[in-house]
Write a protein that binds this DNA or RNA. Structure first.
Length: 281
DNA sequence: ACGAGAACCTGTTTGC
DNA sequence: TGCAAACAGGTTCTCG
């Protein structure tokens, strides 16, 4: 489910709910996530104060006092649900980790597929954490520009779709926002990365930034509603131009479903790709 | 080193 | 309606 904008939204929701408070209780119902939770995970969280929450790629870094970082990745199906500790504890299936603050907030990590993961480690080791080191620049940060992308794409024969999904190239894009960014940049997902060239690289960088910024904004507005109602963070449906729109008219060129018209769906790297074959080259 | 594909796991949607 | 296949927004491993 979550790509960069969703993770950003979850982080903001957690920050509002938790920062400044201490973790009064941590319950591990199932520790075999994508990787097993580390030894002493629950005890390490208990009693710690939440000082800050940062996002790096699709990871959340919950900075605790005592020099610890609680690392969270939501995987494909991970969700964070906020409720009140005043309610009775009544876990649903796939509620794997439950954390309660002394401020009365209960945070439930639910993840049916268990592709998500958590870790707890000393903050001074953040620089050499293998998971965090495996990611490229933040797309909304200063290190991501046409020069960088051009250099990264040099000589690469893989399609732009696979290239942009590679977290070492740029951090935080997933299947949805790659499709949306390529559409916005008018670039075919099948184009070989190495054929990008400067002008297209500039367009692509701009499109990636714009698509993510829009989605984060949309997440911010849904956050206000969700925190008050369902308590579920980060699950929002931004309106997409091409993702999931197979067979529908292209929003920009209005081409319709014939041989060459409408939004097409193809499979690349075992994932669905949506694009407008008429506009994207 | 790179790229393609399978694998991890479970729930939901689609198709016959 | 029922059942099986396909599919799901992520990452990582293996193989060529």
């Amino acid at each position: 489910m979550p790509e960069l904008p969703e993770v950003e939204t979850v982080g903001r929701g957690l920050a509002t709910a938790l920062i400044g408070d201490r973790i009064a209780r941590a319950i591990v119902r199932r520790g075999d996530l994508r990787r097993p939770l580390p030894e002493g995970f629950g005890q390490g969280l208990t009693g710690a104060r939440v000082d800050a929450i940062d996002r790096h790629a699709k990871y959340l870094l919950v900075r605790l006092d005592r020099g610890l970082i609680w690392l969270i990745h939501l995987g494909m199906s991970g969700r964070m649900v906020l409720t009140s500790t005043a309610e009775a504890l009544d876990p649903s299936p796939h509620d794997h980790v439950i954390v309660e603050s002394d401020g009365g907030v209960r945070v439930t990590f639910n993840d049916a597929r268990r592709f998500g993961l958590m870790d707890l480690f000393p903050a001074d080791r953040v620089g050499d954490h293998p998971l965090l080191n495996a990611t490229g620049p933040e797309p909304l940060g200063g290190g991501f520009d046409a020069d960088y992308l051009l250099a990264a794409a040099e000589g690469r024969t893989s399609p732009l779709k696979a290239f942009l999904l590679d977290q070492k190239v740029v951090a935080g894009l997933g299947n949805i926002y790659v499709a949306e960014a390529l559409y916005r940049a008018r670039l075919s997902p099948r184009r070989r990365a190495g054929t990008l060239g400067r002008r297209r690289a500039e367009r692509l960088v701009e499109a990636i930034r714009a698509v993510l910024t829009d989605a984060i904004e949309a997440g911010g507005s849904t956050l206000r509603d969700y925190v008050q109602s369902s308590g579920e963070l980060g699950y929002f449906q931004h309106r997409f131009a091409v993702y999931g729109k197979e067979g529908q008219p292209c929003p920009d060129c209005h081409c319709v479903v014939e041989k060459t018209g409408g939004i097409a769906r193809i499979v690349q790297s075992n994932r669905s790709t949506f694009f407008c074959p008429r506009l994207q080259h």
